[in-house]
Simulated scan of single mutants.
Amino acid sequence: MSLFSSTIQSLENGLNYSSAKQKAISQNIANVDTPNYKAKTVSFKEQLNASISTMEANRTNPRHFEFSGSGKGTLNIRNNPFQYNHNGNGVDIDKEMSEMASNQIYFNALSDRMNGKFNSLKTVIRGGK
Rank of each mutant, 00 (worst) to 15 (best):
S2R: 07
S2Q: 11
L3G: 12
S5R: 02
S5Y: 03
S6Q: 11
S6W: 04
T7K: 07
T7H: 13
T7G: 06
Q9I: 10
Q9E: 14
S10N: 09
L11S: 01
L11A: 07
L11V: 09
E12I: 07
N13Q: 13
N13S: 13
G14P: 02
G14E: 12
G14I: 06
G14D: 11
N16Y: 05
S18R: 06
S18K: 06
S19A: 09
S19E: 09
A20H: 11
Q22P: 01
S26L: 10
I29V: 13
A30P: 09
N31K: 03
N31E: 08
N31P: 08
N31T: 04
D33V: 09
D33Y: 05
P35E: 04
P35L: 07
P35W: 08
N36I: 00
N36T: 07
Y37T: 02
K38L: 10
A39W: 06
A39H: 05
A39N: 04
K40E: 11
T41P: 00
V42P: 02
S43L: 13
S43R: 15
K45W: 02
L48P: 05
N49L: 07
N49I: 09
S51Y: 05
I52C: 12
S53F: 01
T54Q: 15
E56L: 14
E56N: 15
E56T: 15
A57R: 14
N58C: 07
T60G: 15
T60L: 13
N61P: 12
N61E: 13
P62T: 06
H64W: 03
E66P: 02
E66T: 12
F67T: 15
F67W: 09
S68W: 03
G69F: 01
T74Y: 10
L75W: 04
N76W: 12
I77S: 07
R78A: 14
R78W: 04
R78E: 12
N79Q: 14
F82R: 15
Q83D: 15
N85P: 01
N85K: 15
N85W: 05
H86E: 13
N87L: 01
N87V: 03
N87R: 01
G88F: 02
G88D: 05
G88P: 01
G88E: 02
N89S: 09
N89K: 08
G90N: 06
G90F: 03
G90T: 01
V91F: 10
V91S: 11
D94Y: 08
D94T: 06
K95C: 07
K95R: 12
E96C: 09
E96R: 03
E99A: 00
E99I: 00
M100S: 12
A101M: 10
S102L: 12
Q104E: 14
Q104I: 06
I105P: 00
I105D: 03
Y106K: 06
Y106W: 08
Y106D: 12
A109W: 11
A109H: 06
A109S: 14
L110E: 10
D112R: 11
R113C: 00
M114Y: 11
M114A: 05
M114S: 08
N115F: 09
G116E: 13
K117L: 04
K117W: 12
N119C: 02
L121A: 01
L121F: 06
L121P: 05
K122W: 08
T123H: 02
V124R: 08
G127P: 01
G128Y: 07
G128H: 04
K129Y: 00
K129C: 01
K129V: 00
